[in-house]
Simulated scan of single mutants.
Amino acid sequence: MINLNGNLIEDSNFITSENRGYKYGDAVFETIKAVHGKLLFWEDHYFRLMASMRIMRMEIPMNFTMEFLESEILKTIEANALLKSSARVRLNVDRGDGGKYLPKLKAISYNISVEALATDFYSISKQDNYTVDLYKDFFVAPGLLSTLKTNNKAINVLGSIYADENGWENCLLLNTNKNVVEALNGNLFVVSGETIKTPPLEDGCLKGIMRKQLIEVIVNSGDYVIEEASISPFELQKADELFLSNVITGIQPILKYRKKEFVTTIAEDIIRRLNIKLRVS
Rank of each mutant, 00 (worst) to 15 (best):
Ser192Glu: 13
Asp164His: 15
Gly186Cys: 08
Val225Met: 08
Thr198Gln: 11
Leu173Phe: 15
Glu165Tyr: 03
Tyr224His: 02
Gly204Leu: 05
Trp168Lys: 05
Asp203Cys: 11
Leu172Thr: 11
Cys171Glu: 11
Ser192Arg: 14
Asn156Cys: 09
Pro199Gln: 06
Glu169Cys: 06
Glu241Arg: 03
Thr198Leu: 12
Gly159Cys: 08
Ala154Trp: 07
Phe234Asp: 13
Ile161Lys: 12
Val140Asn: 08
Asn175His: 00
Gly222Asp: 03
Asn152Met: 02
Pro142Gly: 09
Ile251Cys: 07
Ile226Arg: 05
Gln252Cys: 04
Asn185Met: 12
Glu169Asp: 13
Pro233Gln: 03
Phe189Pro: 00
Gly167Asn: 08
Leu201Ile: 05
Leu172Pro: 01
Thr195Cys: 14
Ala183Ile: 01
Ile226Asp: 09
Cys205Val: 11
Glu227Phe: 00
Lys197Gly: 07
Gly222Trp: 15
Glu194Leu: 12
Val140Cys: 06
Gly167Tyr: 04
Gly208Cys: 08
Val190Tyr: 00
Glu235Gln: 15
Val247Gly: 12
Val217Leu: 02
Ile248Glu: 07
Arg211Val: 14
Ile161Cys: 03
Val191Ile: 12
Ala239Tyr: 10
Glu202Lys: 15
Glu202Thr: 15
Ile196Trp: 10
Ile215Arg: 11
Thr198Tyr: 09
Pro199Arg: 07
Ser221Gln: 11
Leu158Ser: 05
Thr176Pro: 02
Leu172His: 09
Asn246Thr: 12
Lys238Phe: 13
Ile155Tyr: 06
Thr147Ala: 01
Phe234Lys: 14
Ala239Glu: 07
Gly143Cys: 03
Asn177Ile: 00
Leu174Met: 14
Gly193Tyr: 10
Glu194Ile: 11
Lys149Asn: 14
Leu173Cys: 04
Leu214Ile: 14
Gln213Lys: 15
Gln213Met: 15
Glu241Leu: 10
Thr195Asp: 10
Leu236Lys: 01
Gln252Trp: 05
Leu236Thr: 01
Thr249Gln: 10
Ile196Thr: 05
Tyr224Cys: 00
Val180Gln: 00
Asn187Glu: 03
Val190Met: 02
Asn156Arg: 03
Glu216Asn: 12
Glu182Val: 01
Asp164Lys: 15
Phe234Glu: 14
Lys178Phe: 13
Asn156Trp: 04
Asn220Tyr: 10
Thr198Arg: 07
Cys205Gly: 10
Lys207Met: 13
Ala154Cys: 02
Glu227Gln: 10
Val191Thr: 04
Cys171Asn: 07
Ser160Tyr: 05
Asp223Gln: 15
Ser160Glu: 11
Val180Thr: 01
Trp168Phe: 15
Thr195Leu: 12
Ser245Asn: 10
Asp223Ser: 13
Ile209Gly: 06
Asn156Ser: 03
Phe139Glu: 03
Ile251Met: 04
Gly159Glu: 09
Asn156Phe: 07
Gly167Gln: 06
Glu165Gly: 10
Ser232Lys: 08
Asn166Pro: 02
Leu158Asn: 12
Val181Met: 02
Ser192Trp: 05
Val190Trp: 01
Ser221Phe: 13
Ile251Arg: 03
Thr150Val: 00
Leu173Pro: 08
Gly167Cys: 06
Ile209Ala: 06
Phe139Met: 01
Met210Arg: 05
Trp168Ala: 00
Phe139Tyr: 13
Leu244His: 09
Val190Lys: 02
Gly250Ile: 04
